[in-house]
């Protein structure tokens, strides 16, 4: 392929769109975090987020969250068009404060989990997942 002025312009516009989208999504993710924590500081001990390092198919990425003593765990995909994934609330009969499920990831990005502990403190864990084929359709 030869590089004409037009093709360079198109690629530049494409790059702008590609970089612009995650920035908007991350602003939404920060709003979601602020809503969940109320702006409180987050620790880093006591929450395990298990996610694969490389996911071949972004349509079904298995994840597991485990936070002993947690009341609720919020899971966010920072690079998705809508960052929210799920919020697990544990009741009195929860055997352990852990759960696993399968999620969609639009591309390579950080998956973030935030646990609300019984004493009102918050714990954050994040894991980078490389996605070979994105899972947002289109």
């Amino acid at each position: 392929m030869t590089m004409t002025r037009r093709s360079v312009m198109v690629m530049g516009a494409g790059a702008l769109v590609a970089f612009g989208l995650p920035m908007r999504a991350s602003a939404a993710a920060e709003d979601a975090i602020a809503e969940f924590t109320g702006g409180a500081d987050m620790g880093s001990e006591g929450l395990t987020l298990t996610a694969p390092e490389i996911a071949e198919n972004g349509n079904t990425v298995p994840i597991e969250v485990d936070a002993p003593g947690a009341e609720a765990i919020l899971v966010l995909a920072m690079g998705n068009p809508t960052p929210g994934v799920a919020e697990f609330k544990f009741g009195p009969l929860a055997g352990s404060h852990s759960a696993s499920t399968r999620i969609r990831l639009a591309g390579t990005q950080d998956v973030v989990a935030i646990a609300k502990m019984k004493d009102g403190s918050f714990v954050k864990a994040s894991s980078n997942v490389k996605v070979t084929i994105g899972g947002c359709g289109g």
Partner: peptide, 14 residues
Amino acid sequence: ETVVDVTMEPAIST
């Protein structure tokens, strides 16, 4: 009595 209560968003797989 509640065991779990999960709020799900579109990012949950098929």
